[in-house]
Amino acid sequence: MNSDFSALDAFLDDAGVDGFLIDAAGDDSDQVYLSGFDAPDPFHTLYDGEVHLLVSSLEYGRAKKESDAATVDRHADYEMRSLVEDHGRLEGGRRVLASFLDERNVGSVAVPARFPLATADGLREQGIDVRTPESPPIGRGGANVIETIRATKTDEEIEHVATAQEANEAAMEAAEDLVRAATVEGDELHYEGEPLTSERVKEEIEVTLLRHGCALDETIVACGANAADPHDRGSGPLTAGEPIIVDIFPRDKSTKYHADMTRTFCKGDPSDEIREWYDLTAAAKEAALALVEPGVTGADVHDAVCDVYEDAGEPTLRSDETTETGFIHNTGHGVGLDVHEQPLVGPGGGELEPGHVITIEPGLYDPAVGGVRIEDIVVVTEDGYRNFTSYPEALVVE
């Protein structure tokens, strides 16, 4: 992937350092983004105008073939065996890293805020200046410079998200089909003679995603009072006449990019209050989407959602920061290598730019009633947005 690191060059110039260093494994999205390489164990990526990797011998061959790096070195290239024999594994490893930096005339590095303390201390003992200068965040928070760069997606990344969303919609259809096929037995939904549970629907979601090249560690299928907690994963039998929030956020196993979508379903006759909540939430989502374009802030988009809810008499965190019911979360967030990343679509959210991939996900919650949430994922374009989400919205499943 041909990423634009001009912002990183400017950041290093402003910080007055020679390079940017990451010490992390492939489960760190900044590491994957900068290095173009994924490994299960920690390795080092240096950016000094070019990308340089320092990896174990185990990963050396694969890193040379798969990474975006200008150079790939092994620990053995810096006499690691003798350094470990003389100084122990930890100290020897730090001396190897210091030699790797010295080879490139790098005497000072900027590092992410969560950089390992032991590595930083070890490099300082070897005379390397290690700093954690802040980059300008997108909206509220202290996003590091790689997070900030990652927020603006390339055309290739945008298509990765779109592909993940196609798998997501297949999984949502599988979930809705299960609910549709269920029968109402007393207060519970049954499928093939057994109570239909949150766990059974999650299983169908996960199997469908695997068939489409995606996976996830967890998903949300939450019914009734469980749905009143926005991050309750849900468990147990699904209940007739109550809202079922299905929130799926898969990761494509090949590209590592996520998608995100929520729909709320009800099998049976929902209460008038739930119907009203659903219509309000659909209207809030449309009000938010109507604003999405370059130059509009994430805070503006969030305010549009709050306006819809507050005009209808529903509490929001904007109207009452202590409320535990109503609209009790941000309107959305960035999506990419992480399912939650920059930019913020909420209070303090900064200006949206072309290439920002964001969710719009208003919702209402009350343990006495349940919960309703509807979520689309879109990319900001030069003149508005492109909605990756084509899945229909309908509360009652018949």
Rank of each mutant, 00 (worst) to 15 (best):
G268M: 04
W277E: 13
G88S: 13
M80I: 04
L280E: 08
E169S: 03
G350I: 01
C266T: 11
D129S: 07
N226F: 01
E169Y: 02
L344H: 07
P294H: 09
A394M: 04
L117E: 15
P250I: 02
C223P: 01
N2T: 03
V184I: 15
R233G: 03
E242D: 12
R114D: 14
Y47W: 10
P40C: 05
V308R: 15
I138M: 11
D86E: 14
T323G: 07
P270G: 04
G370D: 10
T316V: 05
E156T: 04
V207A: 15
I244D: 06
Y391L: 06
D300W: 00
P367Y: 13
D30M: 06
G371F: 02
R81S: 12
G295K: 07
G326N: 08
L90S: 11
R200E: 07
S390T: 10
K256N: 11
R275K: 14
V292K: 12
D260Y: 09
A181F: 00
D260F: 07
V130N: 05
G336A: 06
D9I: 02
H356P: 06
A110K: 12
G224V: 04
A288P: 03
D383W: 07
A227Q: 08
E192I: 03
L337V: 02
R81L: 11
K65E: 14
L210V: 00
A76R: 09
A76G: 07
S67P: 09
E206V: 02
D307A: 07
G370N: 11
S67A: 06
A228Q: 09
G313M: 04
R386G: 01
P195S: 00
A290K: 13
E286Y: 12
T316N: 12
G127H: 03
V396Q: 14
G19I: 00
A39T: 01
I146N: 14
R373G: 03
L352C: 03
E361S: 15
A175P: 00
D229I: 03
D4R: 10
V246K: 13
G213I: 00
E218V: 03
S6D: 09
R140H: 02
P137A: 14
L196H: 02
E353A: 10
S108M: 08
A290T: 05
Y385A: 03
I128K: 05
I374E: 14
V379N: 06
T119S: 09
L238Q: 11
F20W: 13
